[in-house]
Each structure stands twice: as C-alpha cells, then as structure tokens.
Design a protein around this nucleic acid. Sequence first.
DNA 1: CGTGAATGTTTGCAATGTCAATAGTTGTCA
DNA 2: TGACAACTATTGACATTGCAAACATTCACG
Lengths: 147, 147
Amino acid sequence: MAKRKNISAAQAWEQALTSVSRLLQKFDSNMQDKAGVSVIWYDVLLHLHHAPEKKMRMQMLSKSLVLTRSGVTRLVDRIEKAGLVRREAAVEDRRGYYAILTDEGEEALAEAQEVHRKDIRTHFGARLDKAEQQAVFNLMSKLRFED
Amino acid sequence: MAKRKNISAAQAWEQALTSVSRLLQKFDSNMQDKAGVSVIWYDVLLHLHHAPEKKMRMQMLSKSLVLTRSGVTRLVDRIEKAGLVRREAAVEDRRGYYAILTDEGEEALAEAQEVHRKDIRTHFGARLDKAEQQAVFNLMSKLRFED
DNA sequence: CGTGAATGTTTGCAATGTCAATAGTTGTCA
DNA sequence: TGACAACTATTGACATTGCAAACATTCACG
C-alpha cells in the first residue's frame, strides 16, 4: 500500500463519508433507472426478504432500516400501493401490524439486486482486492453501533 | 487483526454503508441539538469556509456538497434567512450568484465544528488506532469518484 | 450584428420526510 | 377489577427535496 502523509481522524471520516455517499447516490440512480426501485425501497424489501416468513413488525422494520428511521408508515404506504408489500394485523398484539413482502415484491427485489450486484462489482469490487474488501469490512465493523 | 471468515464485496459495502450512515445520523442529531445546525448546513458552511474569499458560485457549491446535490437554491435560501450566508450577484457573469459565508456563519460553523470534532473523537477516533484510521482513508480514497 | 444553442439559477408543483398529537391496545399493580 | 402508564402505529400539519419548466444571460458562428 502506498505511503502517504499522516491523516487526522476527521480527514479519514470525511473521506469515508464522501466516498460512501457518492457511491450510494450512484447506486440509487442506477437502481431507480434500471429497476424502478430506489435504494430506500430496496432497503425495505431486502430486510423483509431476510425476515422469518418475510414479514416484520413496523417498528422492527423501522429500527432495521439503514436509511431513514422515520416516516416508515408512509414509506410502507407507498410501497404497498405499488403492490410490493402488504400489511396484515398482528394477531398476538392488536396494536401491531406486519409488513409482508409480496411475490411481486420478491420479483422487484430480485431485479433490483441484479442491478445492485453489478454496481457493487464495478464500483467496489473492481477497485479493492479481496484483502482490501476484508479490511473495509473489519474496520467498518468496529465503527458499528446500535442505538 | 482478528481472523474472520471470507466476506463478499456486497457484505463489505453493506457494512461500510451501515456504519457510515448510522454514525452520520448520530453526528447530525448531536450537531442539531447542541449547535442548532444540521450536518447539511454544516456541509455548506464548511465548503464556503474553505473557498477563496469564503464564497462560491451556486453551481460549484452544489457540485461540492456531499449530501444532497439538488435543491441548493432553496437550501441556501434557508441558510440565508438564518443569516449564516448571503448572496451576491457575480459581476463577471450576470447569470450567476455567489453564496458568501457571513461572520455569523463563521461563528455557527465554529460552534458546529467543536461539537463535530468531539463526536469524531469519541465515535471514530476512539475506536480506530492511527494505523486503522490511515487504512480507512486509503481504502476509501480508492472508492472515491467524481461524476 | 443577429439568431439559436448553451449556461446558471430560480420557480412551481408534486413527492417525500419530520415531529408532535392522537387512537387504540396492552400491562401493571393496588 | 379498574385506573393509569407504556407501547404501537397512524394522522395532520408543516418543512424539505426532486424535477421539469421558465428566465435571464452569455457564447458560437454564419
């Protein structure tokens, strides 16, 4: 790895923020253009896809989302209107609702995923070798935090 | 560094996105609470601060911003209304305008920066040693791209 | 020059996001 | 039981964003 002059924590953070943010914007517009789904929708669909029975309580979903923790009611409203998700009252707690991935939602997700994988390959995978990718994962894991 | 099982490019990206996004949300709410300025405003103020004569053409500013590339006219409207920035017609091109950092804007920036530096120290600096910070910088630089 | 394409910024309007207030439900504990 | 706090999700009111259209100015070139 090339030697460079010493960097401050702020500069490192700045660089991470900028790169991630720009990449995300790129991924988003690509996904929107080619699969008709924004990364925010993708975020929702993916979480549901991985959830048991492909369903999640609104609150759980809201806490899991990476982008946007608020406005989930309306976000789900919109995705529901597009038919990619449906709602179902929770039998065990009548205050609650589940958001459930529909078959149509699965399909949309698959399509989005295809676009996304290609983007990751060309913009991320192609610029970092395996060891570097591993390093990114490890370093970023250390920064992870829940709230 | 601890040994872990092999990770895919997608997982590494996912981790980077999640950590950066969560940290940013934290930084934003802290800055908002303690300095009355969002990271988006901070982004604007900081860019102006670093620009020659602390002024930038709208378009240049818009392209430099890390978060949000659109809606800059209105964003500047709001910041202007708060007195942290002012506009001035460009003499050399009468289509253009400069956004200029005011003294009040400098002050707000300084305050925000103080909050931000502390946040970076506790959430970023404290979790990664110098070498790791350097690694983050180097790796993220490789992902950088302009459009 | 004069005319049309290109550039820089703002505006109108619809879509999206935020936050506090509300409605309905559950849980606790005397 | 019954009263009150805590929880879940939605709603209303309002702020912010996104995008195409409009404006004003400059540029290119016959």
